[in-house]
Design a protein around this nucleic acid. Structure first.
Lengths: 210, 210
DNA sequence: TTAATTTAGTAAACGCGTTCACTAAAATCA
DNA sequence: TGATTTTAGTGAACGCGTTTACTAAATTAA
């Protein structure tokens, strides 16, 4: 124990308050967003973000551990788009075909946005620090995917897919769908055949096999 | 027509002969291989390769359009390892479980080599030129995967998976397996649960649903 | 006040992939 | 023999992500 109350007055310059830090982060995110909207992914560089945010490149690293963690907040918007589409799909489809329709929507979403897909999944700078669940926590992916999760549960009730842990079923579906997107987008030279065919075949196989 | 015989004597310095170019490429590849063996992926930089090969960084771009196309030749060796494992797996397993065993081997291979996986699939510098099927052609992936293809065909004969285009079945399986690897490797923060569980669940779902 | 301590932020540097202006070399044409 | 043309190869440069040495600022302790 350093002290009983542990409120031994600190000695040097105080760090930014949480609010200050959050505000600073928001400034930077806004700058990045502007840059992204104007010039696309390739236009978002740490140097340009810093310039637009009115600070030095190094200063960004006081608030974000790296570029990836900064871009995360932009990716959140793209996921929001995906979720919105899934929601629409959920509402407009019949229960029996709902899961398949949503899965196809999921894959199509990425196939139509190969650049976004690459930027989100394919950019891994260095061996990421362990335990800092930055990605999922900060963008609330899990919660957003709840509509998908619900479709899984309902499909189970309808007997479209088997019983068992719905989280596991959902994960299997997501892995499979991302696999299709990954392969078609990053290895376009391989003779995958008609994208529609492999997309449909994969989704149906997964649903039939679950 | 510029000329009937079209063998109008060329005017300037002649370009490297095909053999010269191939030899030059081999020098560079060997340098890259050495660097890779000594220092891993992060040790392979165009500058260091050039130094080791005894030329300037710019010279590399006369023989390779970019780093990715240079690394391709190293990746070929990694694939060879994978193919060897698949071959072993084929020989050691019973026909009825062969396909599942090989699929699991496939996924495990990447899960045990996340750095290799990232280096091969996740590094996409710029929008790739269209039509230059560099990846598949140069490393002969398709031909190497024949043992897998054979397992698919045999599984069809045994009724383990359904009938239909075996290429399509193979593609679906590969997409699914890569999907598992991709997700577990690049989004480790997400609660995928036990890797073994999702791996097995995905492979079995695919096989059961095909 | 002054010294000590802690943080914020900057400017320069590092190594990177890649491009480009340029020089050197090797061939043909006059 | 030049003069010309085409390619090989170099070295400097660009912009990048990131790190680091340092300065400025803000606080407490003496």
């Amino acid at each position: 124990m350093t002290s009983t109350t542990s409120k031994t007055t600190r000695r040097g310059r105080p760090p930014r308050s949480l609010k200050q830090a959050a505000d600073g982060r928001q400034m930077i995110i806004d700058a990045a967003r502007t840059l992204f909207a104007d010039e696309g992914y390739h236009g978002v560089s740490m140097r340009k973000v810093a310039t637009l945010a009115g600070c030095s490149p190094g200063a960004l690293y006081k608030l974000f551990p790296g570029k990836r963690q900064l871009l995360l907040h932009i990716w959140g918007e793209i996921f929001a788009e995906l979720i919105a589409l899934l929601q629409q799909c959920y509402e407009r489809s019949e229960p029996a075909e709902r899961l398949e329709a949503m899965c196809l929507t999921f894959v199509d979403f990425w196939l139509l946005r190969p650049d976004d897909y690459r930027a989100i999944f394919l950019i891994q700078d260095q061996p990421q620090a362990e335990g800092d669940s930055y990605f999922v926590d900060s963008s609330g992916i899990q919660q957003s995917l709840q509509v998908f999760r619900q479709a899984v549960v309902e499909a189970q009730k309808l007997g479209v897919i088997g019983e068992g842990d719905p989280d596991e079923k959902q994960n299997v579906l997501m892995c499979g769908m991302q696999g299709v997107a990954l392969n078609l987008i990053t290895i376009p030279e391989y003779p995958w055949g008609d994208p529609e065919v492999i997309k449909l075949a994969t989704v149906r196989a997964l649903i039939a096999g679950l």
